Amino acid sequence: MTTSPANTRSGARFFVLIPCAGQGSRAGTARAKQYHLIDGRPMVRHTVEAFRALAGSFAAVWVVISPSDEDFLDVFPDFNQRNEVLLVGGGATRAATVLNGLKAMLEQQPGADLDDWVLVHDAARCLVTPEQIKALINECRNDAVGGLLAQKLPDTLKTERDGRVASTVDRSDKWLAQTPQMFRIGPLIDALQLAGDAVTDESSAMEAAGLSPRLVNGSAQNFKVTYPEDFALAEAIFERRRK
């Protein structure tokens, strides 16, 4: 019998942190892409709802927005329910935003502990499912390091030089990193502080600290909405799920 993720033998709790401070300039939207409507709802709402479906599993769900953000509460007026926390503390980079969120988790009263788990998830990965989130938790809850959802690279990978193919890379051991990425809060803070702002995901920071996160099979549908054509694909997937 699988126990609830919130009740582990070690007593560690699970938190969620969703960095939502980027602008998504490559998406070509009039405002930050996380507020663009997909299937009739802002993208970030789809993202949060996947975690709301597992509300009893998490001590709190945090969303970190930019100080200049004037849209979040307009498109998400019912946020701050069910142990939800909105932090106006986005940094200049994704890594800085995550680090600010983690530190705030520890400082809140009652706050998180260094040994608690945090699942960091991109606001723009709005197609993640509760089942994928549960799979990550179940695979990593007893792991010494933690891990991330990822997908084996399906395509042939090339390197480039001056606009032409320079070589073909062996893809047999290559994975596409996804989120959520799940690590203990204390070690992740240490790793992010050591790695600096250049890292683009939490796993990279842990790797820089000499650790090897666990890879957990994700889904091709858990892609990061980045380019204009991605919105149509996400829309089609949501429509198919409804049917």
Results as ranks from 00 to 15, higher is better:
A53P: 10
Q34L: 12
V64L: 09
H46Y: 04
A6R: 08
V75A: 13
F79V: 03
S25C: 09
V75W: 10
L37D: 12
G22L: 10
A21E: 10
T29H: 10
D74I: 06
G22R: 15
S57P: 02
G22E: 15
S57Q: 13
S25W: 10
R26A: 14
V64T: 12
R45E: 14
L17D: 06
R45C: 11
D69E: 05
P77V: 02
A27H: 10
T3W: 02
A60T: 14
G40R: 00
A30M: 01
G24Q: 13
E49H: 02
A27Q: 12
A30E: 09
R41D: 04
G28K: 08
Q34S: 01
Q23S: 03
R26C: 07
E70L: 04
F14C: 01
D71W: 04
H46I: 06
F72K: 09
T3V: 02
A27W: 03
Y35R: 02
P42A: 11
D71V: 11
V16C: 11
G11I: 04
A32L: 04
H36M: 02
D78I: 07
A53T: 04
I18R: 11
R13S: 01
I38S: 08
D39G: 11
C20H: 12
L54F: 03
M43A: 12
R52G: 09
A6K: 01
P5A: 00
A60E: 15
G56K: 14
M43C: 13
E49I: 00
G40T: 00
D39T: 04
A50G: 10
A30D: 11
D39S: 14
G22P: 06
R45S: 13
F72N: 03
A60I: 07
F79E: 06
F14I: 00
F79H: 05
A55D: 10
D78P: 00
F79M: 06
C20N: 15
P77D: 04
V63E: 09
V75P: 01
P5R: 07
A6T: 04
D74V: 13
S66Y: 04
T29C: 08
N7C: 08
G11R: 03
F14Q: 01
P67M: 02
R45V: 12
G56H: 15
T29I: 13
G22H: 15
G56C: 11
S68K: 14
A12Q: 07
V64G: 05
T29K: 11
P77I: 09
S4P: 07
S68C: 09
D74F: 06
A6Q: 02
P19L: 14
S66R: 09
I38K: 06
N7Q: 14
V61P: 01
A30T: 10
T2Y: 08
S10C: 04
D69C: 00
A60Q: 14
